[in-house]
Design a protein around this nucleic acid. Structure first.
Lengths: 202, 202, 202, 202
DNA sequence: GATGAATGAGCGTTCATTCAT
DNA sequence: TATGAATGAACGCTCATTCAT
């Protein structure tokens, strides 16, 4: 009962949405879990939708901001990628309920909010893209499509995050991040073997 | 009115679920879209849930089977990865509505069906993992964690697929697949530069 | 498949109504049980209601007619009452499904049909009433309200019939009829004891 | 709006079920009649079924308890029978709607509840049976089957009650009860006339 | 502010009935 | 005559939201 009521409600909503899914969760469930009356929810949030959106907004904003801060921070491109990966995986591990909810997808959201989500996704992709472009500019990376690297990097992270959420197994975000970045930087081919032009189309 | 009624209904359901989301779509919407009476839906599918699950089952089974066939087919590991990427991106491009629906996530599905989905996901990851292991065994790839490669590979593909679905822009699956695989195989570092132990902390 | 189709349908409807109750029985159930197509039912009966009413009509008409025949037949009043009781109990025992259905009551019947039923009930009460009046007129019975005797007589029979239907136990209609009539004719008091005016207030 | 809402709803349900029959009555009808919203019904009763069962339970429990109290009370057997008859007929007259509903039969009830009803019926029959057995034991009645007397007694009462419900005519429960019991006690035969052995089978 | 009783729009599902074959 | 695929009106029930206290 110590945290301000608004936070208690958000936490209760997060838990409830996570457990039962957005549509199966009722406002009564949430009120019960928050230890407040049903009507009280509406003093702090105008609707069930708004509750969900607020959770998404707050959580994803923190996630995005964290990634952007690292992206625009100091260090080599490789170093920053590794930090971003560690941050993202650590975020998922530290916020399983939230991560699970996000994986349920943009269920029943207003079109407008879906666009905001898509924009956010773009901001994250952009952050990675810029790091990649930095790397290319600095000669740290070979010339490559920064956008493609962003998809592979983030896609890999989110796939791993999904596994973390589902398996409930312990993972070491830092170690996983190191391996992931190593794979992406060094590639799968053995050192010394060069790509043969046109090899892919043989 | 030519395609058999069951297919008309599935198609209508796919479209309606895709446009409005599972929960907002009503059986009446679907019936209208299929050009049949509401009761007719129940002659072919026992419930709204079943309709959704049938769509997922059919589509994802085809997707998974396609990937598995390539994975266990002939060709070098690199070659197979490229074909799988091309197949996956082509599948998403050719089935935008379905791909979009899948991205909505397992909304409101029975726990049992969620487990089936998760198992399917495992089968797909496994297919990639095996190709990766083949590559490592044949010396085509350096020693690496096949599971990690699977996450990076599939994560990258699904991230690109999401972009394809949203942007409605034209993409060339084959070309994108080539670039993607090239990046993963060769890595982001310039050729000749080797990973320096501890380089990430420069 | 030998009995004419109309009878097969009626029999199937009787069984199905009896097993599931009128509202829970579906026309499909009945068609299945009769071994005909659903549409065929409507060639013989205009509606589900009509099917039920026809069953009631046929069965109750036979019941009523049987009772009336005995009532207006030969024999002493006591003798006729005994025959009527035996007939009624035998009818219930021989037509359990039908008797059970009747005990479910006039479920969902049109007001018009309910009136017909009520009229039928009146005809049966009248038949007994006339026998009672005969008995009084002939000095076989003491002066009494024939209508009251009709209620007691039929009420007793129907209460016993309900027990027969529910218990599925074997009963001997003739013996039960004899006991029933004996009780009603001789009364519960020991022979020789006369009703003492005001005795009830002792 | 004065009686507590639960009672208003029960009353409205009783009336509506009585007028339209259980299956034709809709929850909306009932809500309208009770002057509350449709959803409100579900705050007090979990389902339409439950509403019906509650009506039956409450009413029949009162009826049964009343009869049992008289049966196990003081007084001669004859006296108690008369009081029970008066109570039963008075109950029907005072609760016409309820009595009519009961006569509709156990429509659409769960098998479990039907068994409860049947058990209740057994309790009532038993109450009468015990009074009859008392009478026999005390020499007040001649040796007779108490169960048979119970069927005749209750059957007669319920037949009369049905007439009361349908006719909407004024009846005097006490007087009718007196006549009924007199008939059953003294029998239909003129005083002094004894049953001739074998007469029934002549 | 806080509550929870009350509301009623909305939806999945059933099934008697129709009608093209 | 016989069929059963197709229909859509009808209804029980849920739950987000409101508002009197």
């Amino acid at each position: 009962m110590q945290p301000p009521k608004q936070d208690r409600i958000l936490q209760a909503a997060l838990t409830t949405f996570g457990q039962r899914g957005f549509h199966r969760a009722t406002m009564e469930d949430i009120a019960l879990s928050a230890g407040v009356g049903k009507g009280t929810l509406y003093l702090y949030f105008p609707s069930k939708q708004a509750l969900l959106e607020e959770i998404f907004r707050t959580g994803l904003e923190a996630y995005t901001t964290g990634l952007q801060a690292i992206a625009s921070g100091p260090g080599s491109a490789a170093r920053r990628l590794e930090e971003m990966a560690a941050f993202a995986l650590g975020f998922a591990a530290a916020n399983r309920e939230f991560a699970g909810l996000v994986q349920e997808g943009p269920v029943g959201m207003r079109e407008e909010f879906k666009r905001w989500l898509w924009g956010l996704r773009g901001r994250i992709l952009n952050a990675v893209r810029e790091v990649a472009a930095d790397g290319v500019g600095a000669g740290e990376f070979r010339p490559l499509d920064p956008g493609l690297l962003a998809h592979v990097f983030l896609g890999g992270i989110h796939s791993l995050a999904a596994a973390i959420v589902w398996d409930a197994a312990r993972h070491d975000p830092a170690a996983t991040a190191r391996s992931l970045v190593d794979l992406i930087l060094a590639g799968a081919r053995p050192p010394g073997r060069h790509a043969v032009p046109g090899a892919g189309a043989s």
